[in-house]
Design a binder for these strands. Structure first.
Lengths: 156, 156
DNA sequence: ACAACCTAGTTGATGGTTCAACTATTTCCG
DNA sequence: CGGAAATAGTTGAACCATCAACTAGGTTGT
């Protein structure tokens, strides 16, 4: 139990800006999508990942991984999307435990509409108001975070 | 209704890294705090803001603003923290509608314990694995986001 | 002084997320 | 082969956040 290595003033300032800013940024994304398209951010993410998959279909586990959601959460969210007619689920022939989620035509259309507004919001509140070099830095930072998280716990 | 200004490949890559990375980063913070100290991230944030306030007390509205939470959410969360004995609420004498939230001794102690672990997690999964200059860029970026959000909607 | 309005904060219902338990299938390996 | 262990996905309960409605006290203007 050693002394904690506290952040210095500059680190603290930057970390705090990130905490506050990222919470409020995702809040506005959420609100915007919900108001204009009746979609939550996590529903939107699912549609995005499906739209990029071959044949616009993915196994539930892979979709959960891509969308950074737990399997349970995906099951519930998928049920909701299914009842909205944006997603369909059907059984995997080769693995009888497996389930494919796939995007319906309505899902494709809804995503296209939502994405047009969403990209505008992302620009308006982030991309267009910062230096391109700083966006690249953000990319590097969170790529490193993802890599670190994959490596699992322990601090080498 | 003009054509959307889609992100280019590099912007898309960086934005996606941020979306995925930030979700997963706050997930691990949340899990860590919950497992080791029984606190959610938003409870933790409330304790932090209170601990920094003069006399470790703040009016509810101000606390809500500082912690980036809605007033309603703060009421509920505060009720939970109160039942854990970490926060107390009492009436404001000068404005009879008002309520002060203040940190109890137990709250101070709980925060101190939690903060020691929390800073370690923040370092392990973010600060210590990136370039200092990139952290500064993150700080600039989200400071700009906060400024933009304060300005309100509309894109000048 | 009083009516209209605004601000502080809470409450309860609703809906989404998490967690643990469960079924069903597949894989591993003696 | 056959049983143990691992994997895919779902379910329901408990928990937390959001939203609209509400109480109560303050502010403004005439």
């Amino acid at each position: 139990m050693s002394e904690p290595r506290w952040l210095d003033a500059a680190q603290q300032r930057d970390w705090r800006a990130y905490v506050d800013g990222s919470v409020r940024l995702s809040e506005i994304m959420e609100r915007d999508l919900k108001a204009k398209h009746g979609l939550s951010l996590s529903e939107y993410e699912i549609l995005v990942r499906l739209s990029e998959a071959p044949d616009r279909r993915l196994r539930m586990a892979e979709l959960a991984e891509n969308a950074s959601q737990s399997r349970s959460r995906l099951s519930h969210t998928c049920a909701r999307l299914e009842s909205k007619g944006l997603v369909e689920r059907d059984n995997c022939p080769s693995d009888k435990r497996g389930v494919f989620a796939n995007l319906t035509e309505a899902g494709i259309a809804a995503l296209e509409r939502a994405a047009r507004d969403h990209v505008e919001t992302v620009r308006e509140y982030l991309i267009d108001i910062i230096e391109p070099a700083d966006l690249e830095a953000v990319g590097r930072v969170f790529t490193a975070v993802l890599k670190r998280l994959e490596a699992g716990p322990g601090r080498p």
